[in-house]
């Protein structure tokens, strides 16, 4: 397989605190890979390592065959990076921001002008090119940010929570755009997120929890780890009900906050039986197809937030 980003046994500590613990994964050309995790799971640390901001404590990272420890400069020429807060100078116009970026990557003259025009066109911001960035909306700023990151035709794109501050409509557009970009340019795209719907839209997902990669696969593969449907029961007496259901039906019941969560093949029948057996202990109950949130709960034993 065409692996462009390879991460092996990666560990990173801040002083004595372990932020990343033995991470292994790879990303191929043309795929959008998502690191999904709640705040503090280590995804920003992983992003910082991959974008050459910090050096890992131990382990190996290869990007396009270059070693992250010894060949940072070569890697910097080839990657496009989008930070969580837009990396734009708000006092400069869109065009000036792009020119500045181009110069940093050695682009100049007609070549740079052509690239800027291409990017303005691609992200549909040509009519705003002479606007000062601080007058743009969050969604537009993000588009300029992406245009900037792609200006030098990077062979890898790395993004840290790119949908921060964007409403759901713009988020979906962004997600669509990244997928098109990965296939059209045949480049690997790696992004971090704490949003489940954003992760659902990616080709593959790695779930991070407390610095460990607890699951990895396509959204469908991950969800197929859960047999059948997921039943969620809201109760005021979680513990009692949990024990009661476990004893009676011999199924695993995971309690998280005020919810009990059960995987079962025949959800509708199971739910009817439980509701009939313990009517007073149940506030609300539902069942449905598993989501990535269920996968997270299954892997970590806690809710995703």
């Amino acid at each position: 397989m065409n692996k462009r980003i390879v991460v092996e046994r990666l560990t990173h500590n801040y002083d004595k605190r372990c932020a990343l613990d033995n991470i292994n994964f790879s990303v191929a050309s043309g795929e959008v890979f998502c690191l999904l995790g709640p705040n503090g799971s280590g995804k920003t640390t992983l992003f910082k390592i991959l974008s050459t901001c910090i050096s890992p404590t131990s382990g190996h990272v290869k990007i396009l065959g270059f070693d992250l420890k010894t060949e940072k400069k070569a890697i910097r020429k080839l990657i496009g990076v989008v930070f969580q807060s837009p990396g734009l100078d708000i006092k400069l116009t869109v065009n000036e921001n792009l020119r500045h970026q181009g110069h940093l990557y050695g682009l100049n003259g007609q070549n740079l002008n052509n690239r800027i025009l291409e990017m303005l066109d691609r992200f549909d911001i040509a009519d705003r090119r002479n606007d000062i960035v601080e007058t743009l909306s969050g969604g537009l700023k993000r588009r300029v940010d992406l245009a900037k990151a792609l200006l030098h035709k990077p062979s890898v794109l790395i993004l840290d929570e790119p949908s921060t501050g964007l409403d759901i409509g713009v988020r979906n557009q962004l997600s669509q755009h990244l997928k098109e970009l990965a296939t059209q340019e045949n480049i690997p795209i790696l992004l971090t997120t704490h949003l489940l719907d954003e992760a659902e839209g990616c080709n593959r997902v790695g779930i991070l929890d407390k610095g460990r990669l607890v699951a990895i696969g396509t959204p469908d593969q991950l969800k197929s780890e859960i047999s059948g449907d997921v039943v969620i029961i809201e109760s005021g007496e979680c513990e009692t009900l949990q024990n009661a259901i476990q004893d009676r039906y011999h199924v695993q019941v995971v309690a998280a906050e005020n919810n009990l969560r059960i995987e079962t093949a025949n959800a509708h029948e199971f739910l009817r039986e439980v509701v009939t057996a313990y009517p007073k202990m149940i506030k609300a109950a539902r069942f449905g197809k598993p989501t990535l949130a269920d996968v997270f709960i299954k892997m970590t034993g806690k809710t995703f937030d």
Partner: peptide, 13 residues
């Protein structure tokens, strides 16, 4: 820490 200079720092400069 956030914003413009971060991009400059990951550029091959």
């Amino acid at each position: 820490r956030e914003g413009f200079l971060q991009n400059v720092l990951v550029a091959p400069v």
